[in-house]
Simulated assay, not measured.
Amino acid sequence: MTASELAPVVFERLRARYPVTVPALDHRDAWELLVATVLAAQCTDARVNQVTPVLFGRWPGPAQLARATQEEVEEVVRSTGFFRNKAKNLIASAVRVMEHFGGELPRTMAELTTLPGVARKTANIVLSNAFGVHEGIAVDTHVTRLAYRLGFTNSDDPVKIERDLMPLFPREQWGEINHMLVYFGREVCPARKPRCPACELGDVCPKRGVGK
Score class of each variant (00 low, 15 high):
residue 157 D to H: 12
residue 5 E to N: 05
residue 180 M to R: 08
residue 66 A to Y: 04
residue 126 V to Q: 02
residue 1 M to Y: 04
residue 190 P to H: 00
residue 71 E to W: 10
residue 129 N to P: 03
residue 118 V to C: 12
residue 112 L to Y: 08
residue 165 L to D: 07
residue 176 E to I: 04
residue 110 A to G: 04
residue 17 R to G: 09
residue 54 V to Y: 00
residue 11 F to M: 07
residue 203 D to E: 15
residue 202 G to S: 14
residue 29 D to H: 09
residue 104 E to K: 12
residue 57 G to V: 13
residue 126 V to K: 06
residue 71 E to N: 05
residue 28 R to H: 13
residue 169 F to Y: 14
residue 180 M to D: 01
residue 119 A to Y: 01
residue 111 E to A: 15
residue 49 N to K: 04
residue 108 T to Y: 07
residue 148 Y to W: 14
residue 76 V to Q: 00
residue 129 N to C: 05
residue 3 A to Y: 10
residue 106 P to E: 13
residue 129 N to M: 03
residue 81 G to P: 02
residue 116 P to E: 13
residue 94 A to Y: 00
residue 137 I to R: 04
residue 206 P to M: 13
residue 68 A to M: 08
residue 58 R to D: 03
residue 69 T to C: 06
residue 147 A to P: 05
residue 41 A to N: 02
residue 62 P to F: 03
residue 165 L to I: 13
residue 128 S to K: 06
residue 116 P to M: 13
residue 114 T to A: 13
residue 28 R to P: 05
residue 86 K to N: 12
residue 195 R to T: 05
residue 145 R to W: 12
residue 205 C to L: 12
residue 39 L to I: 02
residue 145 R to N: 07
residue 160 K to H: 02
residue 89 N to K: 08
residue 93 S to H: 01
residue 80 T to W: 04
residue 73 V to F: 01
residue 147 A to I: 04
residue 179 H to P: 06
residue 128 S to N: 12
residue 141 T to P: 07
residue 6 L to M: 13
residue 122 T to C: 10
residue 132 G to A: 13
residue 72 E to Y: 11
residue 19 P to Y: 08
residue 210 V to E: 14
residue 116 P to Q: 11
residue 147 A to K: 02
residue 81 G to K: 10
residue 125 I to W: 04
residue 192 R to N: 12
residue 104 E to C: 06
residue 32 E to F: 07
residue 196 C to K: 09
residue 195 R to L: 15
residue 145 R to V: 13
